[in-house]
Structure formats: structure tokens, C-alpha cells
């Protein structure tokens, strides 16, 4: 009981520590967006607008006030959960994030699960059988994954599987044209379809997911496979594995319980890093597959100096990172035998 309370206290403390970080990010992001060149008021007033109407737009956007005043009113709105309007898309930022974050998460998580399922066994096999064909295959995939830009892989896959073979559905977003999305509960189409029991929609959603997921998985596979292989090699060469072998434990047991469990730690760290990196960086995949995700939203907003949208994006990413780091620490305590014993 006390142990559980102790853990909770640690989690709360970690969250509390994140507050100044997030606030700092808010300030920096606010200042950076204002430092961007270009005049959003002029841009949003439209091509033919005259000086008077540009001023009017500036007033409605609140950009005629001083920077500190703008920041105060931004914080006030934020306290009420209001992230403002994304002018480039005409929607409230909260609505955009609520729609787009799940789309990106579904894609990214799908890709990570897929690449994890392929990369970890591949890395382990490559480490246990160095310089065999499987090691070479691992090396080939890793090199390819790192060196092929995602938009290229995406276009190539689309060309083969949609254009030439017609196996994949038309790359037009999350759901084929004629399917009605299920009642949004989680925002993840696949999960919502399962909740609604709508198997046809689930199939359609998975079909749309397939190509972008494989594209991203190829990209994320590389660091995970490499890290697994390196960590396994190190673990296998370590003294505790030698000791375990000397003690006569079976090869399988040595490999799984001793070597692999230890090797998993850096892999999980890499996984967290790759996840947070990919979530923001899969813009190109989103563009190619017309995926209404958060990356393309943020880039578009940045290009037109849509302050509210950029700030909303950065804030949500910051919160996501804090949550993710926490989650990874928790996973550590689960898989790291040393941490487990202390608790």
C-alpha cells in the first residue's frame, strides 16, 4: 500500500516538475511565432484587401495590442481551455487538435507497433547470428529505412500497390470515399469501428492505413532494429550472461530472461524518442496520403503565420512529450529488474 502511494507521489512530483517546462515552452513559442517574418493580418485579409481592411483584420486578431498584452490575453484564454481560432483552416484550434491528433496517433502508433514487431525479432536474430544472412538482411533494411526519404517510399509504395497493382485503395485520407466514419469516441477510426461493431468500416480504415503505416514503419524500423541488435550484442557479451551460461541455464532462458530483458531498456528509450519524433515529422507521409494529421496542419499554419494554430500545436506536443516521458519511466520500472527489486 505504502509502495503504491510512494509511486503515486513520484508520478505527481514528475508532473509538477513539468509545469515550469511547459510554461517555458509557451513563452518561447509565443515569442518565436511573433518573430516569424510576414504579416498574418495582411495575409488573411486576402489578396485584394486595402490598408483599412488589413487594419480591421489586425484588430479582430488582437494583433494591434502590445506583445505583453497579447501574451496575457493568450494565457487568459488558455486558462479557460480556449486555444483560439486557426484562421488558416477556419476551425477552433481545439477542434482541429481533437480531430487531427488521433489521426496522426493512429498512423504513428500503427507504424511503431509494426516496426517494433519486425525490428525487435530482427535485431535479436541479427545479434545472435552475426554475419549470417539474417544479419545482412537487418543491415540492408536499416540502411534502406534510414536513407530512403519517407515521401519517396510513400510514393513508390503507392505507385506499385495502388497505381500498378490496384491492391490498395485510393490514397485519399483515412476512409474511402463512400464509407461513413463511425461515431467518434476515441477518434481512432479503427477502434471506433470496433466499438460500433462496424466491420466493413474497420476493414476500410485498415486498408487506408496500410500503405502510410508501412511507409512510416520502414522509416522507424531502422533505429529500433539497430538499437536492439547493439543492445543484444552488448548483453550477450556481458558478464551476467556468461555467468548464467556457466551456471548451466538453457540457451533460450539465458537469451530471453537475462539478455533480452536487459537489452530492452535502451530499446524502449529509443521507441519513445522515435515516437515523439515521428509524430511531428510524418508531415510528408500525411501529405502524400492526404492524411488529415497534425503534422501537415502545423506546417501549413507555420507557413501562413497562423499564431494560434502553431501555439496550439506546440502546446499539445509539449504535453504529449511530458506524458510520454512519464509513461516510459513507468515502463522502466516494469521491465528493469533492478528498479523492480528496489520497489
Amino acid at each position: 500500500m505504502t509502495a503504491a502511494l510512494e509511486k503515486l507521489r513520484k508520478v505527481a512530483l514528475r508532473l509538477l516538475q513539468a509545469v515550469p517546462t511547459v510554461f517555458g515552452i509557451l513563452v518561447v513559442c509565443f515569442l518565436l511565432t511573433r518573430a516569424l517574418p510576414g504579416d498574418p493580418a495582411a495575409y488573411f485579409a486576402g489578396d485584394m484587401a486595402d490598408a483599412e481592411s488589413i487594419e480591421e483584420v489586425r484588430r479582430t486578431m488582437g494583433l494591434d495590442q502590445s506583445l505583453p498584452m497579447q501574451f496575457v490575453s493568450y494565457l487568459k484564454d488558455l486558462a479557460q481551455g480556449n486555444l483560439g481560432m486557426a484562421i488558416s483552416t477556419g476551425q477552433p484550434v481545439t477542434a482541429e487538435l481533437a480531430n487531427r491528433l488521433p489521426a496522426s496517433l493512429e498512423l504513428t502508433l500503427g507504424a511503431l507497433v509494426l516496426s517494433f514487431l519486425i525490428a525487435v525479432p530482427l535485431g535479436v536474430l541479427a545479434a545472435t547470428r552475426p554475419n549470417t544472412w539474417i544479419d545482412h538482411l537487418c543491415r540492408f533494411l536499416v540502411t534502406a529505412g534510414v536513407s530512403l526519404p519517407t515521401f519517396f517510399t510513400g510514393l513508390a509504395l503507392m505507385y506499385v500497390f495502388y497505381y500498378l497493382l490496384d491492391w490498395a485503395p485510393a490514397p485519399m485520407g483515412r476512409l474511402d470515399l463512400m464509407f461513413l466514419p463511425p461515431e467518434p469516441i476515441t477518434g481512432f477510426l479503427t477502434i471506433d469501428a470496433i466499438i460500433a461493431g462496424d466491420w466493413e468500416v474497420l476493414r476500410a480504415a485498415l486498408a487506408q492505413l496500410a500503405l502510410p503505416t508501412i511507409t512510416l514503419a520502414l522509416f522507424t524500423l531502422a533505429p529500433i532494429a539497430r538499437m536492439t541488435r547493439a543492445a543484444m550484442l552488448q548483453a550477450i557479451a556481458s558478464e551476467f550472461v556468461r555467468t548464467a551460461r556457466a551456471a548451466g541455464l538453457s540457451g533460450r532462458r539465458v537469451l530471453v530472461t537475462y539478455a533480452f530483458r536487459n537489452a530492452l531498456l535502451p530499446v524502449v528509450t529509443t521507441l519513445g524518442m522515435v515516437f515523439s519524433f515521428v509524430l511531428g515529422a510524418n508531415v510528408l507521409v500525411e501529405k502524400v496520403f492526404a492524411w488529415p494529421g497534425i503534422g501537415s496542419f502545423a506546417v501549413e499554419a507555420l507557413v501562413v503565420s497562423d499564431y494560434a494554430a502553431v501555439q496550439g500545436f506546440v502546446l499539445s506536443m509539449a504535453l504529449l512529450f511530458v506524458a510520454l516521458n512519464l509513461l516510459i519511466d513507468v515502463i522502466y520500472t516494469l521491465i528493469d529488474p533492478r528498479v523492480g527489486e528496489e520497489a
Partner: peptide
Amino acid sequence: LREVPAQSTRRAL
């Protein structure tokens, strides 16, 4: 009316 940002995708479609 579908929004497809990538030109190459629109062409394939």
C-alpha cells in the same frame, strides 16, 4: 470534393 495536398497523389488518382 476531396482535399489531396500532394500533386503526385492527385495525378495518380
